[in-house]
Amino acid sequence: MKIVVCIKQVPDTTEIKINPVTGTLIREGVPSIINPDDKAGLELALRLKDEFNAHVTVITMGPPQADAALREAYAMGADRAIHLTDKKFAGADTLATSHALAGALRQLEFDLLITGRQAIDGDTAQVGPQIAEHLDLPQVSYLEDLTFDGKKTFTIKRAIEDGYQMLEVDAPCVVTVLSNAFKPRYMSVRGIVEAYTQQVEMWGFEQISVAEEKLGLKGSPTRVHKAFSRGVKASGELYEVEANEAVGIIMSKLKEKFIL
């Protein structure tokens, strides 16, 4: 079995703080990590490797520093790493990103293509399904568990809002994985020792045969027009009232903020 996992290097958003004076994000010193949903997806691939001797390729699109995410994947046990990097890919929205990735994936053989549900920086959850569409493959999103019959069929537990669906799908197919589905293993010491001696394949525009106008900023139907941070929460108000009256105040405040 051959598996390809799409991973993204993202800033660890749990470490991002807001400058209270300027209201802007403080990103200095924020470590870059493998997107948690993608890391769970890589763990799924490595479990299938443990069980079925699957060959696991990881692919990422990003700037040169995204190399670190691929090294980490090697240290966890991936077999092959591909780094899509080209100035022509820069500034991509989800459509242009999925075109670039699909272009690369057409060059690869696989039975299972794994992506994360969504990346914690962009938070769209669109790239995985768009890749499936470009490649004309069936997709199952929100994967929480997967079993393989050893031949051709995957049985997938898919999380929906108030329960689960059990689905059967034949290879090749695309799945998007939830971060809490599989606890990622630690990198092994030997894996880390060898991670920087292994080859990362660098693929640019030339390797993926996708029309230039579909890529990067040019290929992006959407534009981020403005980015700004939500206001810092104001300090609380204190009411000294009876319990019944307090309930009324709390309910009206929650409605005012559209929480209820």
Partner: peptide
Amino acid sequence: TKQQLLFQQMIRE
């Protein structure tokens, strides 16, 4: 080095 930092990150976690 990058490799030593990766190792340190893993052991720290």
